[in-house]
């Protein structure tokens, strides 16, 4: 196990996984509960288009991707709030539009396909010290945002109209949430890749919803699960020599399957114990009904 930490690049990869694993699912809670899970996928495709533009224009890819996701996040939110397009339709338009832009740009300029692939599927092993500082700064901003606006975000997630009548500035906070999600996706794509970043935002939340209750606890548990699956997935990827992005997401899905199966087993065992209590009760009644030819003391005991 110690061998994995002997390499500098692996240490950086693990730190990056912890940062991304902790921050990405924290946003996911608010999107999953509002049935807007697709927003992560949409913004990640927008980030891909941003990367394609950057590679074509030979500019710094993360910055262009960040601009692209921010612009898309704001536009989607405006379209949704002004009811110009239904929420899911706005997401679909941006998802396919961004993918089309990326495909067109790739066809225009051959030769950067290998770089693009590293963004598509993640390239956590190439994370630099500078990348880590950016990730840590963003993580700090996100934690601060969550702490400062946690109550407001929870209220909006519960019901936006109720939140507005409570005095919450719903539109502004939705914009803030969307922009920070775009930023998180831009950073996370180094770890799991554009195609899988949505999974890291959504799947830990689904596991958390299965094993805990309480809104604050769900956010914290999602982040903890995010860190666990990111690190475990990374370690598995190292030893099995497989793609880290895929390994992280498959680890998360395996944990989800275990959690769901655990919930089913728990439900069945509860049902069985309820049935046995009912059977005991019915049996006690039966004994009571036949009490005349049996032991009266026993009947009384069974009812106690």
């Amino acid at each position: 196990m110690a061998e994995i930490f002997q390499y500098e690049f692996m240490n950086r990869a693990i730190i990056a996984s912890v940062l991304v694993g902790a921050t990405a699912p924290a946003f996911g809670v608010f999107f999953v509960l509002r049935r807007l899970s697709l927003i992560a996928d949409t913004l990640s495709h927008v980030a891909l288009a941003g990367v394609a533009i950057a590679l074509l224009t030979k500019t710094f890819a993360p910055v262009i991707a960040l601009f692209a996701t921010t612009a898309a996040a704001v536009s989607i939110e405006e379209l949704r709030m002004r009811r110009l397009l239904p929420g899911d339709a706005a997401l679909a338009v941006f998802l396919y539009g961004a993918l089309a832009v990326a495909v067109v740009l790739i066809s225009i300029a051959d030769g950067f396909n290998s770089t693009l692939f590293s963004y598509l599927f993640g390239s956590v092993l190439t994370v630099t010290q500078t990348d880590l500082w950016w990730m840590a700064t963003l993580a700090a901003v996100i934690v601060l945002f969550m702490l400062m606006f946690g109550s407001e975000l929870a209220q909006i997630t519960f019901d936006p109209d109720l939140a507005r009548v409570n005095g919450v500035r719903v539109h502004l906070l939705n914009l803030g949430l969307a922009v920070l999600t775009g930023a998180t996706i831009t950073v996370s794509m180094r770890v799991v890749g554009v195609l899988l970043v949505g999974a890291l935002i959504v799947i830990p939340v689904l596991i958390s919803l299965r094993i805990t209750s309480g809104l604050n606890r769900t956010v914290i548990t999602s982040s903890v699960i995010g860190v666990v699956v990111a690190v475990v997935g990374m370690v598995i990827a190292y030893y099995a020599d497989i793609a880290p992005g895929g390994s992280v997401v498959l680890t998360a899905i395996s944990l989800l399957v275990v959690a769901e199966m655990g919930a089913v087993v728990l439900r069945m065992s509860r049902r069985n114990s309820r049935c046995s209590v009912l059977n005991d009760h019915a049996h006690a009644h039966e004994s009571h009904a036949h009490g005349a030819d049996g032991d009266g003391d026993q009947d009384l005991h069974s009812h106690r």
């Binding site: 049935r35 606006f149 109550s151 407001e152 209220q155 005095g167």
Partner: peptide, 27 residues
């Protein structure tokens, strides 16, 4: 309201958490 969008889904909050939203007095 007649219905909230969250009560129809598996919203994880407790009753106390929701009632506590009422004590919100601004940012």
């Amino acid at each position: 309201p007649q219905r909230t969008q969250a009560t129809e889904s598996r919203f994880p909050a407790s009753v106390r958490e929701i009632v506590n939203f009422g004590s919100y007095s601004g940012f």
